[in-house]
Design a protein around this nucleic acid. Structure first.
Lengths: 200, 200, 200, 200
DNA sequence: TATGAATGAGGGTTCATTCAT
DNA sequence: CATGAATGAACCCTCATTCAT
């Protein structure tokens, strides 16, 4: 299971052969089928377990938190642990998405991802209404940017040997404040924010 | 070529068969080999063309721009066009990275990616020194976050039907200012920035 | 095709490997798939061709003939040629019936077999009404006996839900007296028994 | 044993897995091997038991009966019971004949079948000599027709090397007039046809 | 240029059988 | 007696690639 997940993450789901999984487990390929119905069912367990954990963490964050900013911070912080536990699953999702997304068996992936999107956009929307977030925020685009920035780099960064807390803090800082320094922002704010011109 | 690229992007490089490429081109699979040495060489041309364009655009941005902030904004804006032209290549890179990265033939991918990283980190470093960017910025982590946030969502968002300019603006706004509204930041700044506590 | 059919007939459909078929054809197993989608599709062509021929011959016999006795004699005579041409198909049907009959792809087998039964029973019924055949003939049982004796049984009569004694009686009656009614035999006997001419 | 036999009959010997047999018996596949040496040995017991019963019944019929007609009727009548008791075995023989017939372990099948043929042909021959059966009867062809119609055909007549026209003529003669000679029928008609009592 | 038959290695999967527990 | 993990050979099928035409 864990072995298979790591191989799937390393080489891709399609590119990993059951013989390789069996080799890693120290058994023969045929013996795998004593424990699993098929290669797909291994992937299924891995991915379903991941999405269940993510959704559980998200729902807990929503219930425990106060304002949307708090909710999002909780989601981000809990995600760092969830994603760390399911690094293989996330990599599989990223690498072999166009395989899984076309297989009927994995239809639940789309459903769960929609649920995740709903949670994010709800928080962003509420934050806009409460004046906590910029009111020109496009919640759908922002969600995509945030989820990708949160999920995808988390893998490579953690795999790259970066410290988890460090990554999370960098992410949150970027998320809430951008990369601009306070002084620079002050200077820009005095004349006319350059970003104010962006929308054209 | 273009046909092949789109198939590769749609279904993945490994998952696309030469027969499918030939079918799309209206010829038979064997006939493809009068135009290409191998399936790999098709992928090679597509990926090499993409990275050449990206690097050329980056270098032009560096030369044309003034301060690091300007450089980065130019890079982001030019990237939206480069990536749009090479959506297939980028998707291939994302989906089949662990295939390409292990093939000797595609060793240049790692080299070019390192060059791209060098350009980003140089700008971020210079921005920190000039007081334009926060001086607690981890340039390597930030680069990874930024590249991924810039490259990966660009694909899915464009594929999702979002307007390119809108995406770029959302990205830049997030990049320089985060999602926090000015008022909320002012309130937070008065007591103690919550993010200041994050690093522990 | 013919080679495959003969192997299927000799060793059974399931028991014949695609490698054996390819060997018989002088090519490698993979090369078979240039000509056929799958092993099943080979079986499909063979069986469908057989049943089409049989049904065509049956319908022609029905249209060309006069009384039911004539129809049945035509069917029997034409069957000997049809079956000779499709010996492999018939053997496959006999040996691997419980495989084919459970595969959705081969659902048409059941349909065609029902059509064949309809033709037989219609003729037997008409013969009874015309006084040519014994009027105590059970057309369904008789059809099963006749088809099996003609085709080389595919299906068990007892498994078909018929009462054992009834089957035995029908069999003995057929065996000792045939299906010809006493009156018809008497009429035939007065001039020259038609059967007397059969052996030449 | 009985469970295995029924599964073999239902799905074929080859197509039935030992796991299915074990499941039906409520144990695990490995545990079967405490009761049987191998899957083949299960088939062996089933088939050998069947053929022993058949041969015993045939020999008893030969000893108990008077004239050949009586012998054959006894054989047919006793067969209906023997075959009912061994339906699974017969179906196995029919479906997987070309498997069993090539396995050295099952060589006795051919031997027993030859013995059965000897009994039939002896009776038919004696009937011809005694004037009870038509003297133009081909005993080998007739035996094949009778056994197949009685047993649910195992073997193709044409594959057995018989001449097609001969087969057709024999079949038609049997079909329309039965095997009873005109004289025998006349004699029987004077008192009461024995077949007339069958249904009663 | 294009064809298309052929290759051959390798893919996922099945299954009768073994054996330590 | 029963378990169930493991075996290993064989199965059907895929696919990038070659090559005579």
């Amino acid at each position: 299971m864990r072995l298979a997940g790591e191989l799937f993450a390393q080489k891709g789901f399609r590119a990993t052969t059951v013989r390789e999984i069996a080799d890693a487990a120290g058994i023969l390929s045929g013996s795998l089928y004593h424990h699993f119905d098929s290669k797909e069912s291994i992937g299924d367990e891995i991915l379903a377990g991941f999405l269940n954990d993510v959704l559980a963490a998200y729902r807990a964050a929503v219930e425990a938190a106060g304002d949307p900013r708090d909710t999002i911070e909780r989601i981000v912080r809990t995600s760092s642990h969830t994603l760390a536990r399911h690094r293989a699953a996330l990599t599989m999702l990223q690498n072999d998405w166009n395989y899984f997304s076309t297989q009927p068996r994995f239809a639940y992936l789309r459903k769960d991802l929609r649920e995740i999107e709903r949670i994010w956009t709800t928080q962003l929307e509420r934050g806009k209404e409460a004046g906590i977030f910029r009111d020109d925020l496009d919640v759908r685009i922002t969600y995509r940017l945030l989820r990708d920035i949160l999920w995808l780099p988390m893998i490579s960064l953690q795999a790259g040997g970066f410290d988890t807390d460090e990554v999370v803090d960098s992410f949150l800082r970027l998320l809430f404040d951008g990369i601009t320094s306070r002084d620079a922002r002050a200077r820009a704010g005095r004349s006319a924010t350059r970003l104010g011109q962006l929308g054209g």
